[in-house]
Structures are given as structure tokens and as C-alpha cells.
């Protein structure tokens, strides 16, 4: 009888453990999804536009889910991030989606496309102040991209295909 009680308690505990751990897994997964989308103002974004790590080359792409040419070129940035991850290259995708569309448009887009690059939402209405700080020649049209490292910095107000993007990047890492 004692044995039976022990067994029942054991089963009960293990079930309980199972439930607890699966709960925490779900919570973690949700936590990660939340963490993936940083919402920053321009002042907070600036550290991403100026060498965080001296040995790295950063490719910062300004885009939005509503910008068709941006969405078209996103896979090339993803490909670049994957192919050059061993070469100290990091791609950062700065979304200019409207903050009110984070849950309705941006997050579903990120989930569907499972982007590996870091995505940041820039929420800063004072574009007349921050656009020239990104680059003095930027009119404000997207897509736009900056490639920079410790010794070199280049701004592009244009679209890329993969070959073009790779050609530009190689000037930074040769």
C-alpha cells in the first residue's frame, strides 16, 4: 500500500514537473520574441550607428514592412548576415514601421519571415533632426543602408541585390 502511495506521488510530481517546465519554455519563447524587437528613439539607436565593437563591420539597413523594395532586398541582407557571420560582419535591420503597427504588421512579418539579423524599431518622429545625423545626403527615402567599420563608412540611398551588396561589403573587409 505504501509503495502504491509512493508511486502515485511520484507520478503526480513528475507530471507536475512536466507541466511546470513546459510552461516555462512557453514563457521563455515569448520572452525572446519580445526581446527581439527593441523599440528605440534616435538617441538610443546611435550606438548602433557608431562602432560598438572596433573589429566588426556593421551593415545597417533602414526598411519597413510597407516598403516593397525594402522587403524585396531583406533576404539579401539576411544572406549576407549568414554568409559573413564568421568575418565579423553584423547586419542590423532598423524598421521604420509605424509604432501603432508593431503588433498588427511588424511582429507577424518578423514571425513569418524568421529573420536572423537583429531588428530594431526606430520610433522617433523628429526625422528632420535625425535623418541628417544618419547621413548628410539622405533625403529620407527608404530603403537606405549604411556600411561602416572603424576605418570606413559609406551611405547608400538605393536598393541592392545580393551581388551588389556583397561587392560593397568586400571593400570593408578586404
Amino acid at each position: 500500500m505504501n509503495q502504491l502511495v509512493k508511486l502515485v506521488i511520484l507520478i503526480f510530481l513528475s507530471l507536475g514537473n512536466g507541466t511546470t517546465s513546459s510552461n516555462s519554455v512557453t514563457a521563455n519563447a515569448m520572452g525572446t520574441a519580445e526581446e527581439e524587437l527593441k523599440v528605440l528613439n534616435f538617441e538610443e539607436l546611435q550606438s548602433y550607428l557608431n562602432s560598438k565593437e572596433a573589429k566588426k563591420t556593421y551593415v545597417v539597413n533602414f526598411w519597413a514592412t510597407w516598403c516593397a523594395p525594402c522587403v524585396k532586398e531583406l533576404p539579401y541582407f539576411e544572406q549576407l548576415n549568414t554568409n559573413y557571420s564568421n568575418a565579423d560582419v553584423e547586419v542590423i535591420l532598423v524598421s521604420l514601421d509605424f509604432p501603432k503597427h508593431i503588433d498588427s504588421k511588424l511582429k507577424p512579418f518578423l514571425k513569418k519571415n524568421a529573420l536572423n539579423s537583429e531588428v530594431i524599431l526606430l520610433d522617433d518622429i523628429d526625422s528632420n533632426t535625425w535623418i541628417p545625423k544618419v547621413d548628410k545626403n539622405w533625403s529620407g527615402a527608404i530603403p537606405a543602408t549604411i556600411i561602416y567599420n572603424k576605418s570606413r563608412r559609406q551611405f547608400y540611398e538605393r536598393s541592392f541585390n545580393y551581388a551588389e551588396l556583397e561587392t560593397e561589403l568586400q571593400q570593408f573587409i578586404k
Binding site: P69, S127, I131, S139, G140
Partner: peptide, 9 residues
């Protein structure tokens, strides 16, 4: 002034 916008297609 400058503002974000959609590139002309």
C-alpha cells in the same frame, strides 16, 4: 526639412 518617405518607384 527632411522626413522619411517611400522611394519613388
Amino acid at each position: 526639412t527632411r522626413a522619411i518617405g517611400c522611394s519613388i518607384k
